[in-house]
Structure formats: C-alpha cells, structure tokens
C-alpha cells in the first residue's frame, strides 16, 4: 500500500486534461444516472412531466392563438379601405378627375371609381337587398371612390389624417373610415399579449415549483445515500449534480410533451379551420407552433426544471447532515 503522503502530493499534479476528463465523466454519469432513476419510477416521473408539460403548453397555446389572430389582422391591414362618397349630382367627368387626382397621391395605393350603377349592382348581389332595391324608382347612390392607402392597420392616425383631408374637398359628401374597430382590435390583441405574458410568467413559476417539489421528494427518498456521500467527503456540487440533471430531465420531458400537445392541437384544428376560412372566402391557414413556441417549450422546459431543482436542492441538501 502506498503511504498517505504520496496520496496528498498526487492531487496537486493533476493536469488540465485530467481535470477535464473528470469533469466530463462526472457530468455524463450524473446525466445518465439521473435519467435511469427517472425511468425506474415511471409513474411518479410521468405525473411530474405531465404537469410541467401542461404548464408549458398552456402559454404556448395562447401564444399560437395570438400569432394566428395577428395573421388575420395582417390580412385586414393590407386591405384598409376608405369609402369616399361624392355629393349627389356630381358629373361623371368631375368624378373621374377626382379619382385621377387621388390616385396620384403618394399615400394612396389605389383609387377605384364606383359609378352609381356599379354601386347598385353591388348591393343587388347582397342577399336580401335585391327585392328592397327593386322597389326604388331611381338610383339613390352617388358616385363613389374606394381608396386603398399605402399604410396599413398599424397606422390609424395616418388613415384619420387622410380622411380629414378628403373631407375638405368640395365634391366630397362623406368619407367613411372605421378606424375605431381597428383600434379596438389592436387593443384587444395587445391585452391578449399581456395576458399571455402574465400567464407565461405564472405558469413558469408553477413549472419551477413542480420541478422543485419533485426534486424535494427525490432528495428525501435518497437521504441515506446523500448522508453517506457527505460522510466520505462528497462536495455540495457533487451531491447536488444528479438532482440538477433530474430537474433537467423532468423539464425536457415536459417541454417535449408541451410541444407535442401544441403540434397535435394545431394539426387537429387545421382541417376544420381551413373549411371555415374557405366558407368565408379567406385564404387564412392555421399556423402551427412557430420557432418561438418550439424554443420556449424545448429550451424553457429544461431550463425551468433545472432552476426548480437548483432552488429545491440548495435548500434541502443543506438540511441533510450526516448523523452517524
């Protein structure tokens, strides 16, 4: 047997390569042993993973709702319209001249002239109007111009300014632009976004707590082992490592589950949504989990699990001191 003083000098000669080898070995071992422990108690692990998965999937689902709602409003935004009704009795030539003037403006993408006859025709095609219109003797509709401005839904103040300018024109009788509902929609989406941020924060804390509590139970179940490791001089980091990886696995499992739930839900809903959209003559298609949702669940899950394990093990491992 070597003499003990040889043992103490050997430690100081450790090279960086050996240190790295040890480090990798330690972490690989903790990674695999914690996974093994998780798999050996499938029921308990599954419960934790399900709770974490739902905790991550819920804000993810709300996020998908938001993304899709924004997609809808983007489509609307591209077709912001102002209807400019000219004064009754305006001549066709005057209307054409005005249409030309408007179309030359920089902030107007398109100006379309609608004659009273065309307007009437449009109304006739709307169900229920045809009969009412046939009761009229003359066409009550004036000349109209429909404008598509260059800016979108996101700049309601520009739309308002344009409308105000149009109202100043002599032949213009009425300018109809409903920016109010656009504003309302924007604030609803903003509210939804804030609600999702709040929910994500609350549920994220929930995921940390669930992971932390599971790790607490794991620590209690392995109290004897922890005592022995501490007795023979295992450092806090060494004792804690497998539990941190345990939290990582719970989080990763939950993250994968959450992603599968989001993907499954959008896959299931895509068909019905497409049918509904087609009915409304829209090309809208449901978007599945985007990069943000995938990153948040697949990276956020393990991160929150690790955090919960770190939080719980910092506290609970300190409570366990060997009592021989």
């Amino acid at each position: 047997m070597a003499r003990p003083d040889q043992a103490s000098s050997r430690g100081s000669r450790r090279t960086f390569g050996q240190w790295l080898e040890t480090w990798v070995e330690w972490h690989a071992q903790a990674l695999l042993s914690s996974l093994g422990k998780l798999l050996r108690q499938p029921m308990g692990s599954a419960l934790t993973i399900i709770v974490i998965g739902l905790g991550l999937a819920l804000p993810g689902a709300l996020h998908l709702v938001l993304v899709n709602a924004e997609q809808v409003t983007e489509n609307i935004g591209r077709s912001v319209q102002l209807s400019v009704f000219l004064a009754p009795g305006t001549e066709a030539s005057q209307a054409k001249a005005l249409q030309q003037r408007l179309e030359d403006r920089n902030d107007v993408l398109e100006a379309k002239l609608v004659s009273p006859e065309e307007g009437l025709e449009d109304f006739r095609s709307v169900e229920g109007f045809a009969e009412a219109l046939s009761a009229l003797e003359d066409n009550p509709l004036p000349w109209a111009i429909t404008l598509r401005p260059t800016h979108g839904l996101d700049a309601p103040e520009l739309t308002e300014a344009l409308a105000a300018e149009l109202r100043e024109i002599e032949q213009v009788d009425l300018v109809q632009v409903d920016t109010d509902w656009v504003r309302r929609l924007a604030s609803i989406l903003d509210l939804l976004r804030r609600a999702i941020e709040g929910a994500a924060l609350a549920l994220g804390i929930g995921v940390v707590a669930v992971a932390g509590n599971t790790i607490r139970l794991d620590i209690n179940a392995r109290r004897d082992e922890i005592e022995v490791v501490k007795l023979v001089g295992g450092s806090d980091a060494y004792v804690r490592r497998p539990f941190l990886y345990g939290g990582f696995w719970y989080g990763l499992g939950g993250g994968l589950l959450a992603w599968l739930l989001l993907w499954g839900a959008s896959w299931t809903l895509a068909g019905p949504v497409e049918i509904l959209a087609t009915d409304y003559g829209s090309a809208f298609r449901l978007l599945g989990p985007d990069a943000l949702a995938a990153t948040a669940t697949l990276l956020g899950g393990p991160l929150l699990g690790w955090l919960g394990a770190w939080w719980s093990s910092s506290y609970h491992l300190r409570q366990i001191e060997p009592k021989p």
Binding site: G11, E25, W26, V232
Partner: peptide
C-alpha cells in the same frame, strides 16, 4: 469506489 469517484479519479 465512492471516495475516489467523488474526488474525481478517472474511471
């Protein structure tokens, strides 16, 4: 092997 494992002796 426990005391060696915790002190980082290569496998």
């Amino acid at each position: 092997a426990l005391p060696l494992a915790i002190s980082g002796t290569p496998r």
